[in-house]
Design a protein around this nucleic acid. Structure first.
Lengths: 195, 195
DNA sequence: CTTTGATTTGAACACATGTTCAGTTAAGTC
DNA sequence: GACTTAACTGAACATGTGTTCAAATCAAAG
Protein backbone atom coordinates (compact mmCIF):
# COMPACT_ATOMS: atom_id res chain seq x y z
CA UNK A 1 0.00 0.00 0.00
CA UNK A 2 1.68 3.16 -1.17
CA UNK A 3 1.22 6.74 -0.10
CA UNK A 4 -0.76 6.25 3.09
CA UNK A 5 1.22 8.98 4.81
CA UNK A 6 2.15 12.31 3.34
CA UNK A 7 -0.69 11.81 0.92
CA UNK A 8 -2.16 14.78 -0.90
CA UNK A 9 -5.57 14.21 0.61
CA UNK A 10 -4.29 15.61 3.90
CA UNK A 11 -3.77 18.88 2.10
CA UNK A 12 -6.48 18.92 -0.53
CA UNK A 13 -9.26 17.91 1.86
CA UNK A 14 -8.99 20.98 4.08
CA UNK A 15 -8.41 23.19 1.09
CA UNK A 16 -11.69 22.04 -0.44
CA UNK A 17 -13.49 22.98 2.75
CA UNK A 18 -11.71 26.33 2.93
CA UNK A 19 -12.55 27.15 -0.67
CA UNK A 20 -16.18 26.16 -0.21
CA UNK A 21 -16.40 28.21 2.99
CA UNK A 22 -15.01 31.31 1.39
CA UNK A 23 -17.00 31.01 -1.85
CA UNK A 24 -20.31 30.09 -0.20
CA UNK A 25 -19.93 33.05 2.14
CA UNK A 26 -19.10 35.48 -0.64
CA UNK A 27 -21.50 34.37 -3.38
CA UNK A 28 -23.99 32.03 -1.73
CA UNK A 29 -24.36 28.26 -1.98
CA UNK A 30 -26.58 28.24 -5.04
CA UNK A 31 -24.35 30.62 -6.98
CA UNK A 32 -21.16 28.61 -6.42
CA UNK A 33 -20.56 25.64 -8.72
CA UNK A 34 -18.39 22.64 -7.96
CA UNK A 35 -16.17 23.75 -10.82
CA UNK A 36 -15.58 27.12 -9.16
CA UNK A 37 -14.65 25.44 -5.88
CA UNK A 38 -12.33 23.11 -7.77
CA UNK A 39 -10.71 26.03 -9.59
CA UNK A 40 -10.06 27.78 -6.27
CA UNK A 41 -8.34 24.63 -4.99
CA UNK A 42 -6.46 24.22 -8.26
CA UNK A 43 -7.99 20.91 -9.23
CA UNK A 44 -10.62 19.50 -11.58
CA UNK A 45 -14.24 19.24 -10.44
CA UNK A 46 -14.20 15.45 -10.35
CA UNK A 47 -11.44 15.43 -7.73
CA UNK A 48 -13.73 17.11 -5.19
CA UNK A 49 -15.72 13.90 -4.95
CA UNK A 50 -12.79 12.27 -3.14
CA UNK A 51 -13.57 14.62 -0.25
CA UNK A 52 -17.32 15.03 -0.24
CA UNK A 53 -20.11 12.73 -1.43
CA UNK A 54 -21.89 15.75 -2.92
CA UNK A 55 -22.30 19.51 -2.80
CA UNK A 56 -25.01 19.34 -0.14
CA UNK A 57 -22.73 17.46 2.27
CA UNK A 58 -20.08 20.10 1.80
CA UNK A 59 -22.54 22.75 2.98
CA UNK A 60 -23.82 20.64 5.85
CA UNK A 61 -20.31 19.81 7.06
CA UNK A 62 -19.38 23.48 7.21
CA UNK A 63 -22.51 24.41 9.15
CA UNK A 64 -22.39 21.38 11.42
CA UNK A 65 -18.73 21.89 12.31
CA UNK A 66 -19.42 25.53 13.07
CA UNK A 67 -22.35 24.80 15.37
CA UNK A 68 -20.53 21.99 17.16
CA UNK A 69 -17.55 24.24 17.79
CA UNK A 70 -19.79 27.04 18.98
CA UNK A 71 -21.50 24.83 21.53
CA UNK A 72 -18.31 23.06 22.65
CA UNK A 73 -16.53 26.37 23.00
CA UNK A 74 -19.28 27.85 25.17
CA UNK A 75 -19.52 24.77 27.36
CA UNK A 76 -15.75 24.80 27.87
CA UNK A 77 -16.03 28.26 29.42
CA UNK A 78 -15.81 28.49 33.21
CA UNK A 79 -19.27 29.19 34.61
CA UNK A 80 -19.50 31.90 37.20
CA UNK A 81 -22.27 31.61 39.83
CA UNK A 82 -24.01 34.98 39.37
CA UNK A 83 -26.45 35.09 36.41
CA UNK A 84 -25.41 38.71 35.84
CA UNK A 85 -21.84 37.55 35.34
CA UNK A 86 -23.03 34.69 33.16
CA UNK A 87 -24.85 37.16 30.95
CA UNK A 88 -21.71 39.25 30.60
CA UNK A 89 -19.67 36.13 29.83
CA UNK A 90 -22.16 35.04 27.20
CA UNK A 91 -22.18 38.48 25.59
CA UNK A 92 -18.40 38.65 25.36
CA UNK A 93 -18.13 35.05 24.25
CA UNK A 94 -20.73 35.42 21.51
CA UNK A 95 -19.24 38.59 20.08
CA UNK A 96 -15.69 37.24 20.23
CA UNK A 97 -16.46 33.82 18.81
CA UNK A 98 -18.58 35.14 15.97
CA UNK A 99 -16.28 38.00 15.02
CA UNK A 100 -13.47 35.47 14.53
CA UNK A 101 -15.53 33.38 12.09
CA UNK A 102 -17.44 35.79 9.84
CA UNK A 103 -17.70 33.36 6.93
CA UNK A 104 -19.01 30.47 9.03
CA UNK A 105 -21.54 32.74 10.74
CA UNK A 106 -22.71 34.20 7.46
CA UNK A 107 -23.26 30.76 5.99
CA UNK A 108 -24.95 29.45 9.14
CA UNK A 109 -27.54 32.22 8.90
CA UNK A 110 -27.94 32.56 5.14
CA UNK A 111 -27.85 29.03 3.83
CA UNK A 112 -30.32 27.30 6.12
CA UNK A 113 -32.84 27.11 3.29
CA UNK A 114 -30.37 25.30 1.06
CA UNK A 115 -30.08 22.40 3.47
CA UNK A 116 -32.00 19.22 2.79
CA UNK A 117 -34.89 18.65 5.19
CA UNK A 118 -32.94 16.19 7.27
CA UNK A 119 -29.83 18.35 7.48
CA UNK A 120 -31.96 21.37 8.31
CA UNK A 121 -33.45 19.56 11.28
CA UNK A 122 -30.01 18.70 12.61
CA UNK A 123 -28.68 22.25 12.34
CA UNK A 124 -31.89 23.66 13.78
CA UNK A 125 -31.56 21.39 16.80
CA UNK A 126 -28.05 22.67 17.43
CA UNK A 127 -29.16 26.26 17.13
CA UNK A 128 -32.02 25.64 19.55
CA UNK A 129 -29.51 24.14 21.95
CA UNK A 130 -27.41 27.29 21.78
CA UNK A 131 -30.41 29.55 22.31
CA UNK A 132 -31.33 27.48 25.35
CA UNK A 133 -27.97 28.28 26.94
CA UNK A 134 -28.76 31.97 27.37
CA UNK A 135 -32.43 31.27 28.03
CA UNK A 136 -31.40 29.20 31.07
CA UNK A 137 -29.28 32.07 32.33
CA UNK A 138 -32.33 34.33 32.15
CA UNK A 139 -34.53 31.83 34.00
CA UNK A 140 -31.98 31.49 36.77
CA UNK A 141 -31.56 35.24 37.04
CA UNK A 142 -35.30 35.78 37.19
CA UNK A 143 -35.56 33.29 40.08
CA UNK A 144 -32.72 34.93 41.96
CA UNK A 145 -34.19 38.36 41.30
CA UNK A 146 -31.30 39.97 39.42
CA UNK A 147 -33.26 40.10 36.15
CA UNK A 148 -36.54 41.80 35.37
CA UNK A 149 -37.57 39.76 32.32
CA UNK A 150 -41.17 38.90 31.47
CA UNK A 151 -40.43 36.37 28.73
CA UNK A 152 -37.03 34.63 28.82
CA UNK A 153 -37.50 33.10 25.36
CA UNK A 154 -38.13 36.49 23.76
CA UNK A 155 -35.27 38.03 25.73
CA UNK A 156 -32.94 35.30 24.42
CA UNK A 157 -33.94 35.87 20.82
CA UNK A 158 -33.60 39.63 21.24
CA UNK A 159 -30.14 39.44 22.80
CA UNK A 160 -28.81 36.88 20.31
CA UNK A 161 -30.11 38.89 17.35
CA UNK A 162 -28.54 42.04 18.75
CA UNK A 163 -25.16 40.35 19.31
CA UNK A 164 -25.08 38.53 16.00
CA UNK A 165 -25.79 41.84 14.30
CA UNK A 166 -22.27 42.95 15.25
CA UNK A 167 -20.93 40.83 12.40
CA UNK A 168 -22.77 42.93 9.83
CA UNK A 169 -20.80 46.08 10.58
CA UNK A 170 -17.78 45.37 12.79
CA UNK A 171 -14.41 45.29 11.02
CA UNK A 172 -11.06 44.84 12.74
CA UNK A 173 -9.06 48.04 12.47
CA UNK A 174 -12.12 50.26 12.30
CA UNK A 175 -13.19 53.08 14.59
CA UNK A 176 -13.76 50.72 17.53
CA UNK A 177 -11.71 47.82 18.85
CA UNK A 178 -13.35 44.50 19.66
CA UNK A 179 -13.07 45.12 23.45
CA UNK A 180 -14.73 48.51 22.88
CA UNK A 181 -17.61 46.79 21.14
CA UNK A 182 -17.84 44.09 23.80
CA UNK A 183 -18.10 46.73 26.50
CA UNK A 184 -20.77 48.72 24.68
CA UNK A 185 -22.90 45.64 24.10
CA UNK A 186 -22.37 44.29 27.63
CA UNK A 187 -23.69 47.55 28.94
CA UNK A 188 -26.78 47.61 26.71
CA UNK A 189 -27.57 43.93 27.22
CA UNK A 190 -27.28 44.12 30.99
CA UNK A 191 -29.41 47.22 31.29
CA UNK A 192 -32.09 45.83 28.96
CA UNK A 193 -32.85 42.95 31.36
CA UNK A 194 -31.58 43.98 34.81
CA UNK A 195 -33.94 44.37 37.75
CA UNK B 1 -54.71 50.80 -31.17
CA UNK B 2 -56.30 47.75 -29.59
CA UNK B 3 -56.32 46.61 -26.01
CA UNK B 4 -54.80 49.66 -24.40
CA UNK B 5 -57.18 49.35 -21.47
CA UNK B 6 -58.09 46.12 -19.74
CA UNK B 7 -54.92 44.71 -21.16
CA UNK B 8 -53.41 41.59 -19.64
CA UNK B 9 -50.25 43.44 -18.70
CA UNK B 10 -52.13 45.15 -15.89
CA UNK B 11 -52.65 41.74 -14.38
CA UNK B 12 -49.56 39.82 -15.44
CA UNK B 13 -47.12 42.55 -14.42
CA UNK B 14 -47.99 42.49 -10.71
CA UNK B 15 -48.26 38.72 -10.75
CA UNK B 16 -44.70 38.44 -12.04
CA UNK B 17 -43.50 40.58 -9.17
CA UNK B 18 -45.54 38.60 -6.64
CA UNK B 19 -44.22 35.30 -7.94
CA UNK B 20 -40.63 36.54 -7.90
CA UNK B 21 -41.08 37.89 -4.38
CA UNK B 22 -42.42 34.66 -3.03
CA UNK B 23 -39.95 32.40 -4.82
CA UNK B 24 -36.88 34.54 -4.11
CA UNK B 25 -37.83 34.61 -0.42
CA UNK B 26 -38.40 30.86 -0.24
CA UNK B 27 -35.52 29.54 -2.33
CA UNK B 28 -33.15 32.45 -2.89
CA UNK B 29 -32.46 34.53 -5.98
CA UNK B 30 -29.78 32.25 -7.43
CA UNK B 31 -31.88 29.12 -6.98
CA UNK B 32 -34.94 30.50 -8.78
CA UNK B 33 -34.95 30.41 -12.58
CA UNK B 34 -36.96 32.62 -14.87
CA UNK B 35 -38.80 29.48 -15.98
CA UNK B 36 -39.90 28.77 -12.40
CA UNK B 37 -41.20 32.31 -12.01
CA UNK B 38 -43.01 32.00 -15.33
CA UNK B 39 -44.53 28.67 -14.29
CA UNK B 40 -45.83 30.25 -11.06
CA UNK B 41 -47.49 33.00 -13.12
CA UNK B 42 -48.79 30.48 -15.64
CA UNK B 43 -46.89 31.79 -18.62
CA UNK B 44 -43.81 30.96 -20.70
CA UNK B 45 -40.41 32.33 -19.67
CA UNK B 46 -40.17 34.66 -22.66
CA UNK B 47 -43.27 36.54 -21.59
CA UNK B 48 -41.56 37.77 -18.42
CA UNK B 49 -39.39 40.04 -20.54
CA UNK B 50 -42.39 42.22 -21.26
CA UNK B 51 -42.29 43.18 -17.58
CA UNK B 52 -38.62 43.25 -16.67
CA UNK B 53 -35.52 43.88 -18.75
CA UNK B 54 -33.77 41.02 -16.93
CA UNK B 55 -33.68 38.92 -13.77
CA UNK B 56 -31.42 41.36 -11.95
CA UNK B 57 -33.89 44.23 -12.41
CA UNK B 58 -36.62 42.05 -10.97
CA UNK B 59 -34.60 41.62 -7.77
CA UNK B 60 -33.62 45.27 -7.61
CA UNK B 61 -37.20 46.45 -8.11
CA UNK B 62 -38.42 44.32 -5.24
CA UNK B 63 -35.72 45.56 -2.88
CA UNK B 64 -35.94 49.16 -4.01
CA UNK B 65 -39.72 49.28 -3.65
CA UNK B 66 -39.46 47.78 -0.20
CA UNK B 67 -36.87 50.28 1.01
CA UNK B 68 -38.71 53.24 -0.50
CA UNK B 69 -41.93 52.18 1.21
CA UNK B 70 -40.11 51.63 4.50
CA UNK B 71 -38.65 55.14 4.45
CA UNK B 72 -41.81 56.82 3.20
CA UNK B 73 -43.89 55.01 5.79
CA UNK B 74 -41.63 56.08 8.65
CA UNK B 75 -41.49 59.66 7.48
CA UNK B 76 -45.28 59.77 7.22
CA UNK B 77 -45.51 58.99 10.92
CA UNK B 78 -46.32 61.87 13.28
CA UNK B 79 -43.20 62.85 15.17
CA UNK B 80 -43.58 63.33 18.90
CA UNK B 81 -41.25 65.83 20.61
CA UNK B 82 -39.73 63.59 23.32
CA UNK B 83 -36.88 61.33 22.07
CA UNK B 84 -38.09 58.65 24.48
CA UNK B 85 -41.45 58.66 22.70
CA UNK B 86 -39.70 58.72 19.33
CA UNK B 87 -37.76 55.62 20.32
CA UNK B 88 -40.96 53.85 21.30
CA UNK B 89 -42.60 54.92 18.04
CA UNK B 90 -39.67 53.65 16.04
CA UNK B 91 -39.66 50.33 17.85
CA UNK B 92 -43.36 49.74 17.29
CA UNK B 93 -43.18 50.97 13.70
CA UNK B 94 -40.22 48.77 12.82
CA UNK B 95 -41.72 45.61 14.30
CA UNK B 96 -45.13 46.26 12.77
CA UNK B 97 -43.89 47.22 9.31
CA UNK B 98 -41.46 44.33 9.05
CA UNK B 99 -43.80 41.69 10.43
CA UNK B 100 -46.29 42.56 7.70
CA UNK B 101 -43.73 42.01 4.93
CA UNK B 102 -41.70 38.93 5.83
CA UNK B 103 -40.81 38.08 2.24
CA UNK B 104 -39.61 41.58 1.36
CA UNK B 105 -37.55 41.82 4.55
CA UNK B 106 -36.01 38.41 3.99
CA UNK B 107 -34.98 39.34 0.47
CA UNK B 108 -33.71 42.75 1.51
CA UNK B 109 -31.32 41.12 3.98
CA UNK B 110 -30.36 37.94 2.15
CA UNK B 111 -29.98 38.99 -1.45
CA UNK B 112 -27.78 42.04 -1.13
CA UNK B 113 -24.84 40.09 -2.54
CA UNK B 114 -26.80 39.19 -5.66
CA UNK B 115 -27.23 42.83 -6.61
CA UNK B 116 -24.99 44.33 -9.26
CA UNK B 117 -22.47 46.80 -7.88
CA UNK B 118 -24.52 49.78 -8.95
CA UNK B 119 -27.78 48.42 -7.59
CA UNK B 120 -26.05 47.45 -4.35
CA UNK B 121 -24.89 51.02 -3.84
CA UNK B 122 -28.43 52.33 -4.30
CA UNK B 123 -29.97 49.91 -1.81
CA UNK B 124 -27.14 50.47 0.65
CA UNK B 125 -27.75 54.20 0.52
CA UNK B 126 -31.41 53.67 1.37
CA UNK B 127 -30.54 51.37 4.25
CA UNK B 128 -28.05 53.90 5.59
CA UNK B 129 -30.77 56.51 5.40
CA UNK B 130 -33.07 54.33 7.50
CA UNK B 131 -30.37 53.67 10.09
CA UNK B 132 -29.77 57.39 10.33
CA UNK B 133 -33.38 57.92 11.38
CA UNK B 134 -32.95 56.14 14.70
CA UNK B 135 -29.39 57.40 15.10
CA UNK B 136 -30.72 60.94 15.02
CA UNK B 137 -33.22 60.09 17.73
CA UNK B 138 -30.37 58.85 19.90
CA UNK B 139 -28.30 61.99 19.31
CA UNK B 140 -31.20 64.23 20.24
CA UNK B 141 -31.94 62.18 23.36
CA UNK B 142 -28.30 62.28 24.44
CA UNK B 143 -28.33 66.07 24.16
CA UNK B 144 -31.54 66.38 26.13
CA UNK B 145 -30.26 63.94 28.73
CA UNK B 146 -32.94 61.24 28.47
CA UNK B 147 -30.51 58.71 26.98
CA UNK B 148 -27.29 57.34 28.41
CA UNK B 149 -25.65 56.18 25.18
CA UNK B 150 -21.91 56.30 24.54
CA UNK B 151 -22.02 55.54 20.82
CA UNK B 152 -25.24 56.37 18.96
CA UNK B 153 -24.11 54.56 15.80
CA UNK B 154 -23.53 51.31 17.68
CA UNK B 155 -26.77 51.74 19.61
CA UNK B 156 -28.64 52.14 16.30
CA UNK B 157 -27.14 48.99 14.84
CA UNK B 158 -27.85 47.07 18.03
CA UNK B 159 -31.47 48.16 18.24
CA UNK B 160 -32.21 47.59 14.56
CA UNK B 161 -30.62 44.12 14.64
CA UNK B 162 -32.63 43.25 17.72
CA UNK B 163 -35.89 44.43 16.18
CA UNK B 164 -35.34 42.87 12.78
CA UNK B 165 -34.65 39.59 14.57
CA UNK B 166 -38.33 39.41 15.45
CA UNK B 167 -39.03 38.30 11.90
CA UNK B 168 -36.99 35.11 12.37
CA UNK B 169 -39.30 33.68 15.02
CA UNK B 170 -42.57 35.64 15.26
CA UNK B 171 -45.58 34.00 13.65
CA UNK B 172 -49.12 35.39 13.76
CA UNK B 173 -51.32 33.11 15.85
CA UNK B 174 -48.44 31.90 18.02
CA UNK B 175 -47.95 32.15 21.78
CA UNK B 176 -47.68 35.93 21.67
CA UNK B 177 -49.68 38.56 19.81
CA UNK B 178 -47.94 41.30 17.88
CA UNK B 179 -48.85 43.95 20.50
CA UNK B 180 -47.37 41.62 23.16
CA UNK B 181 -44.13 41.46 21.22
CA UNK B 182 -44.11 45.21 20.64
CA UNK B 183 -44.48 45.83 24.35
CA UNK B 184 -41.72 43.41 25.31
CA UNK B 185 -39.29 44.94 22.83
CA UNK B 186 -40.26 48.52 23.70
CA UNK B 187 -39.40 47.75 27.29
CA UNK B 188 -36.03 46.18 26.52
CA UNK B 189 -35.04 48.83 23.99
CA UNK B 190 -35.94 51.71 26.29
CA UNK B 191 -34.10 50.27 29.27
CA UNK B 192 -31.00 49.47 27.23
CA UNK B 193 -30.41 53.14 26.42
CA UNK B 194 -32.26 55.19 29.05
CA UNK B 195 -30.43 57.48 31.44
C1' DC C 1 -65.77 41.26 -40.03
C1' DT C 2 -61.48 43.31 -40.56
C1' DT C 3 -57.78 45.65 -38.81
C1' DT C 4 -54.53 46.67 -35.24
C1' DG C 5 -51.08 46.10 -32.04
C1' DA C 6 -50.32 44.45 -27.38
C1' DT C 7 -49.39 39.92 -25.47
C1' DT C 8 -47.73 35.40 -25.46
C1' DT C 9 -45.72 31.20 -27.32
C1' DG C 10 -42.21 27.96 -28.42
C1' DA C 11 -38.09 27.09 -30.25
C1' DA C 12 -33.48 28.31 -30.38
C1' DC C 13 -28.92 30.20 -28.65
C1' DA C 14 -24.53 29.28 -26.23
C1' DC C 15 -23.19 27.97 -22.14
C1' DA C 16 -23.35 26.09 -17.10
C1' DT C 17 -24.94 22.55 -13.85
C1' DG C 18 -23.86 18.24 -10.42
C1' DT C 19 -22.14 13.94 -10.86
C1' DT C 20 -19.81 9.67 -12.77
C1' DC C 21 -15.98 7.00 -14.27
C1' DA C 22 -12.41 4.84 -17.28
C1' DG C 23 -7.97 6.12 -17.70
C1' DT C 24 -3.59 8.63 -16.36
C1' DT C 25 -0.21 10.23 -13.06
C1' DA C 26 2.88 9.96 -9.39
C1' DA C 27 4.41 8.95 -4.69
C1' DG C 28 5.69 5.56 -1.62
C1' DT C 29 7.15 0.32 -0.61
C1' DC C 30 9.71 -3.67 -1.67
C1' DG D 1 13.39 -0.51 -11.18
C1' DA D 2 8.90 -2.88 -10.62
C1' DC D 3 4.67 -2.71 -8.21
C1' DT D 4 0.74 -0.85 -5.81
C1' DT D 5 -2.67 2.28 -5.11
C1' DA D 6 -4.23 6.94 -3.71
C1' DA D 7 -5.10 11.11 -6.25
C1' DC D 8 -6.43 13.33 -10.11
C1' DT D 9 -7.83 14.30 -15.04
C1' DG D 10 -10.82 15.02 -18.76
C1' DA D 11 -14.55 13.82 -21.16
C1' DA D 12 -19.18 12.61 -21.02
C1' DC D 13 -24.14 12.54 -19.23
C1' DA D 14 -28.71 14.62 -19.05
C1' DT D 15 -30.61 18.62 -17.69
C1' DG D 16 -30.99 23.58 -16.65
C1' DT D 17 -29.55 28.58 -17.40
C1' DG D 18 -30.88 33.75 -18.98
C1' DT D 19 -32.21 35.78 -22.93
C1' DT D 20 -33.88 36.60 -27.84
C1' DC D 21 -37.22 36.70 -31.46
C1' DA D 22 -40.17 35.33 -35.45
C1' DA D 23 -44.57 33.69 -35.46
C1' DA D 24 -49.10 32.85 -33.44
C1' DT D 25 -52.92 34.54 -30.58
C1' DC D 26 -56.41 37.46 -29.19
C1' DA D 27 -59.29 41.36 -27.41
C1' DA D 28 -60.89 45.68 -28.62
C1' DA D 29 -61.62 49.66 -32.18
C1' DG D 30 -63.41 50.91 -36.60
Amino acid sequence: MARTQGSHSDITGPRVREAALSLFARHGYAAVSMRKIAAEVGVQAGALYNYTPDKQSLLFDLMNTHMQELLASWKAQPKRPDPLDQLEDFTRFHIRFHSKRPDEVFIAYMELRNLSEENYRKISALRDLYETQIEDVFREGIRSGVFDVVDPKVASMAVIAMLTGVNTWFREGGRLSLPDVENLYCDMVRRSVSA
